[in-house]
C-alpha cells in the first residue's frame, strides 16, 4: 500500500517541461518531505498528482495503492484517498464551508445514503475547536475574506474531515505565524497513523521541526536528486542548496 511515482515527466500545457523523471515511493504510515530551491518543480509535482488541468503528464506513471492515478479524474483521485493542502487555497464566494464539506463528504457515501447532519456538524465543530477556528466560519464562504493563516487552517480542517490516505501539504507553513504553525502541525501530527502518509513540501526547517519526517528528498530541476533522513534538513538549513550546484559542476 503506497504511492508510487515512476519516471514522471510533466509540463505546463503547451509549455516547457518541469518534471523530468521523478521516482518516488511513499508507503503508508510514512511522512516524507520534499525540499528544493524555487522553481525546482515542488508545487508542480503536487498539482500533477492531483490532476490540475494546467499541466500535462508527458511520460511516466503514478499509482495509488495499485490504482493508476492518471486514469482517474480529479474528484476520483480525492475519493480514492489523495488530498492536497494548497499553497494558495482558493476563495469560493457564496459557498459556505459547511455546504462545501457536506458536499465533499456526501460524495464519499454510497448512492442513496444521506450524510447525517447532526454528527457532521458535531464533528466539524470538534475539529474546528482543535484547530482554534471560530465556529462562525461554518457559515462563511470558503476562504472568502480569510487571512492567509485562516485559509491554511481551513485546508487542514478539510483534511481532517476527509480523512485521506495520502496527504500532500504544499508549503502549508507559508503565511503562518508561530502559533498558527504549531496548531496546524499539531493537527497534522494528530492524524499520523500507520494507514496514512504525508508528503510535506516546504522551504523551511521550522515546519519539519514540528512534523518530523521519516524521509527527506531534495527536488532540483524536476528530479529527486537526494534522499536521506532528517539530517538532510539540518544540512540544507546550514548550507542552503549550493551543494546541488557544486555536484552539478
Amino acid at each position: 500500500m503506497s504511492l508510487v511515482i515512476k519516471n514522471l515527466h510533466a509540463r505546463v500545457k503547451d509549455g516547457a517541461p518541469i518534471l523530468n523523471g521523478i521516482n518516488l515511493e511513499i508507503p503508508r504510515g510514512e511522512v516524507h518531505a520534499i525540499m528544493g530551491p524555487n522553481g525546482s518543480g515542488k508545487s508542480t509535482l503536487s498539482k500533477v498528482l492531483c490532476g490540475h488541468p494546467d499541466y500535462e503528464v508527458t511520460a511516466g506513471s503514478a499509482e495509488l495503492d495499485g490504482q493508476d492515478l492518471f486514469a482517474m479524474s480529479v474528484d476520483e483521485r480525492s475519493r480514492a484517498g489523495l488530498f492536497l493542502a494548497f499553497q494558495y487555497p482558493v476563495e469560493v464566494p457564496g459557498v459556505t464551508n459547511a455546504n462545501f464539506m457536506r458536499a465533499a463528504l456526501q460524495a464519499r457515501l454510497p448512492k442513496g445514503e444521506e450524510l447525517d447532519a447532526v454528527s457532521f456538524y458535531k464533528e466539524l465543530r470538534s475539529k474546528m475547536k482543535q484547530l482554534g477556528m471560530d465556529p462562525k466560519f461554518t457559515a462563511r464562504a470558503v476562504n472568502e475574506g480569510f487571512s492567509g493563516g485562516e485559509k491554511k487552517r481551513n485546508d487542514i480542517l478539510q483534511m481532517m474531515m476527509l480523512n485521506p490516505s495520502y496527504a500532500i501539504l504544499d508549503e502549508t507553513d507559508s503565511g503562518l505565524d508561530v502559533d498558527a504553525l504549531r496548531i496546524v502541525s499539531d493537527g497534522v501530527n494528530a492524524m499520523r497513523a500507520p494507514f496514512r502518509s504525508f508528503l510535506v513540501i516546504t522551504h523551511y526547517k521550522r515546519l519539519l521541526d514540528y512534523i518530523h519526517p521519516d524521509v527527506v528528498h531534495v527536488l532540483y530541476q524536476g528530479q529527486i536528486v537526494r534522499t536521506a533522513g532528517f539530517e538532510l534538513v539540518d544540512h540544507i538549513e546550514q548550507h542552503g542548496f549550493d551543494f546541488l550546484k557544486t555536484s552539478e559542476e
Binding site: 480529479v74 474528484d75 480525492s78 475519493r79 482558493v90 458536499a103 465533499a104 460524495a107 476527509l162
Partner: peptide, 16 residues
C-alpha cells in the same frame, strides 16, 4: 479545481 480536488463530482461542483 478546488472543489473537484475535495472529491466533489463535476456536476455538483458546478452547481455549488
Amino acid at each position: 479545481f478546488y472543489l473537484l480536488s475535495r472529491g466533489i463530482p463535476h456536476y455538483e461542483a458546478h452547481q455549488l
